[in-house]
């Protein structure tokens, strides 16, 4: 069965880029537009990995990570943070909150795939 990856980003075009990239590599993709939306969509479905932006309205990536780590079902789900080079401090915050990897925007689809394939269990 295909692995499912959740993409959380407030930018529809970035979600789409990640979505297209991951689908092409054979993953199933679920999209959420911010942390709150993502939490709402985590209702028992199996998510193998998450790709999450940092700066989002309603609930930012760090708060989402914290909420995720406090949850029952998803606290071991690996999360890749999407950051920009200007957010060094956020990177640290994200690391403390439990992010497993970073992909720095702007990224190439191949970089995204590489990060995903390293983290997702076969």
């Amino acid at each position: 069965m295909a692995k499912t990856i959740m993409v959380i980003d407030d930018s529809a075009s970035i979600r789409q880029v990640v979505n297209i990239t991951l689908k092409k590599a054979g993953y199933d993709v679920v999209e959420a537009c911010d942390g709150r939306d993502a939490l709402g969509k985590l209702t028992g479905q199996k998510i193998n990995l998450m790709v999450c932006d940092v700066n989002m309205p309603n609930m930012d990536g760090i708060s989402f990570l914290k909420a995720l780590k406090a949850s029952q079902g998803y606290r071991f789900t690996p999360v890749i943070m999407l950051t920009t080079e200007s957010q060094e401090s956020k990177k640290q915050e994200g690391k403390e909150a439990g992010a497993r990897a970073w992909v720095v925007k702007p990224f190439k689809p191949e970089q995204m795939l590489e990060a995903v394939s390293k983290l997702i269990l076969p």
């Binding site: 407030d10 075009s13 970035i14 932006d53 700066n55 989002m56 920009t84 990224f107």
Partner: peptide, 30 residues
């Protein structure tokens, strides 16, 4: 915050999509 976020998102998306003209300028605004 909302203003910043809008600019930030435009910059980020244009960067990922390789639209350099937008990314470069929006970066300055950001």
């Amino acid at each position: 915050n909302s203003l910043f976020r809008s600019a930030h998102t435009i910059k980020g998306s244009s960067g990922v999509l390789g639209i350099e003209s937008v990314e470069r300028f929006t970066h300055a605004v950001e």
